[in-house]
Design a protein around this nucleic acid. Structure first.
Lengths: 120, 120
DNA sequence: TTTTCATATGAACAATTATTCATATGTTTG
DNA sequence: CAAACATATGAATAATTGTTCATATGAAAA
C-alpha cells in the first residue's frame, strides 16, 4: 500500500486526483461566497414567508406586515435584504412601495427545498 | 376609495384577498421552519465547498480536510450538520468514514443558486 | 407649509453559529 | 493488551444576524 504525502489518510482510489478535482471544478472564492450569501437569504422563516406571499401577489409593505403579523420595521429590514440579493423588486406608487418577485429561480429553489424536506 | 379595516394601507385591488391567499397557500409553521433550516445549511461557504467536492467523488473526512485546507474538527462539525439535514450520507470503511451526496436535490438547488447569481 | 401616512434605517440587544482546542470514541495494527 | 490512526463531540470564543425602538425620509393631503 503506497504512501501519499499530499493527503493524510489511506483510502482506495480517489486521492491523488482529489486535489485536481477540487482545483478544476470548485468555483472561485467569490462565487462560493456569493452562493452562500444567497442561500443565507433563504435561511430565515420570515423571509420565506414573505416570498410565499409574493408568489401569489404584488403587495405593499404594510399589507405584508399585517398579513404576517409583524412590525413594519421588521418586514422592511427583511425586504431590504431580499432586494439587495435580487430576489425581489420594488415599485413606488404614491406613498406605498409594492414588492414582487424578481425572477423565477426563487420559485424553483424553494420548490426543490420543499421536495427535499418532504422526501423524508 | 373604500376603507379597509383588516389591513392598514390603501391600495388598488389585492387587499381583501391577501389574508385568504396567505391562509390557503402558506405552508404550515413547521414546514416553513424546516425550509429555513434547510437553506441555512446551504448558507455557509465551508459547507458549500464540501458539497462541491462531493459532487465529484465520495471522500473521507481527512481528505476533505486536506483538500479544503481546514482542520479535521471543523470539517467534521460541518459534515454532521450536512448529514443531519440529509444532504449527505456516510459509510464506514475501517478507520475511515466516507461521505457522499444523499440525493440530487442538492445539485439542483445549488445549480439554481449559481444561475441566479450569474444572471446579474 | 404643516400634518399625516408609508416606508426606510441606525443603534442596541438577544440569539445563533463557525471555528478552535481538548478530548472522547471507534478501528486497526503490533 | 497497548499504541496509532481516523473521526466525533463538548465547551469556549468571536462573529453574524433578526427584531425592536426611535427616528428619518418621502409623498400626499389639508
Amino acid at each position: 500500500m503506497e504512501k501519499r504525502d499530499d493527503l493524510c489518510c489511506e483510502t482506495t482510489e480517489v486521492h491523488g486526483e482529489l486535489l485536481k478535482i477540487v482545483n478544476e471544478t470548485m468555483p472561485d472564492e467569490t462565487e462560493l461566497y456569493d452562493l452562500a450569501e444567497l442561500f443565507k437569504v433563504f435561511g430565515d422563516s420570515t423571509r420565506i414567508r414573505i416570498l410565499f406571499v409574493l408568489f401569489e401577489a404584488e403587495v405593499c409593505v404594510c399589507d405584508l406586515a399585517a398579513a404576517l403579523r409583524m412590525t413594519q420595521s421588521a418586514i422592511s429590514h427583511q425586504l431590504r435584504i431580499l432586494k439587495q440579493n435580487k430576489l425581489v423588486k420594488s415599485r413606488r406608487e404614491g406613498k406605498s412601495v409594492f414588492y414582487s418577485l424578481a425572477d423565477d429561480h426563487v420559485r424553483t429553489i424553494i420548490a426543490q427545498g420543499r421536495e427535499h424536506i418532504e422526501e423524508e
